[in-house]
């Protein structure tokens, strides 16, 4: 009788292959950004002469400083800091607006005896059929006509005209046990109290998840800000990418590669960090919201 005392399976070739594939995938994702960081750490003359850099140099601080604080643009009035601020206003304003509007609407639809609830639902629902891009021109005209061009309102509010958040909260509210509202009513809570004391605390994780997704969505908006903000003091980082690119290709003297890369990194970093940091919330929100 053969006695096997240790049955530890040997490391299989297929396991190694799995890891190799995953590492290759991770590198594919990381490589461009790694290159962005290394490149930003060199001065413009080196970059113009030798191309993108694979190793780290010593100009990182200088380039980021220039990106953040050196005034640029046609008006010589914007710098990275003001664009960062605008991006934050857009991201946070959009996420906040989205959550407030859609929670309120979903609450009304789910928790009230309302004759036109179904109608309201469909009115809101239809918006997922047409993304902003396909109605971009008339939207621009409407917003301009209302005198909202080059305002934060004009930048943020039209983006709020969609159903995504409402849908999500409706689904979530429907999944909250019916007994909860019954118990709350027996305990004497009206609709306001029930919302604040019960529903909002229950929705905390959901709100956080949606906030992250919406923040990233708002921060990353490009087409709409490009159209509606021509005043450079309202430029967001992502909106500014176009100017940055143009400055590289249309500038006569040595292009300011280092500064441009630094700005691209700043445009990328906040949403990326948020997604990585709050990964589990983010994934949950993303996957749940599409069900």
């Amino acid at each position: 009788m053969t006695k096997i005392t240790h049955n530890k399976k040997p490391i299989r070739v297929s396991d190694l292959a799995d890891h190799a594939i995953l590492i290759a995938g991770a590198l594919l994702m990381l490589f461009p950004v790694y290159l962005a960081f290394t490149t930003t750490s060199h001065d413009n003359i080196t970059l113009a002469r030798e191309g993108l850099q694979f190793g780290f140099g010593d100009q990182m601080g200088a380039n980021f400083y220039a990106a953040m604080f050196e005034k640029g643009g046609f008006s010589e009035q914007i710098d990275g800091t003001s664009m960062l601020l605008n991006s934050l206003i857009l991201g946070i304003g959009f996420a906040f607006g989205k959550i407030v509007l859609s929670m309120a609407a979903a609450y009304a639809i789910v928790y009230f005896r309302l004759r036109f609830a179904t109608f309201a639902f469909w009115v809101i629902f239809t918006t997922i059929l047409l993304p902003l891009e396909v109605r971009i021109l008339p939207s621009y005209e409407v917003v301009t006509g209302l005198g909202m061009a080059n305002t934060y309102t004009g930048l943020i509010v039209p983006l709020l005209a969609s159903a995504t958040g409402t849908f999500f909260f409706r689904q979530f509210f429907l999944s909250v046990p019916e007994e909860l509202v019954e118990a709350a009513r027996i305990d004497g809570a009206g609709p306001g109290k029930f919302f604040i004391d019960i529903l909002v605390p229950l929705s905390r994780t959901m709100i956080a998840a949606i906030f992250i997704i919406m923040f990233v969505y708002g921060w990353n908006q490009y087409l709409w800000p490009t159209l509606i903000t021509t005043d450079e003091s309202l430029f967001t980082l992502v909106r500014g990418i176009k100017q940055i690119t143009q400055s590289i290709y249309e500038g006569n003297d040595i292009p300011e590669y280092g500064q441009a890369w630094a700005l691209a990194i700043i445009a990328m970093l906040p949403p990326v960090l948020i997604v990585i940091f709050f990964q589990s919330w983010f994934v949950k929100g993303l996957v749940e919201s599409e069900k």
Binding site: M1, T2, K3, I4, T5, N7, K8, K9
Partner: peptide, 13 residues
């Protein structure tokens, strides 16, 4: 996985 020992079904390990 079996950490230690022998498992036979029929006459096969």
């Amino acid at each position: 996985d079996i950490t230690t020992g022998d498992l036979r079904i029929g006459d096969r390990v």
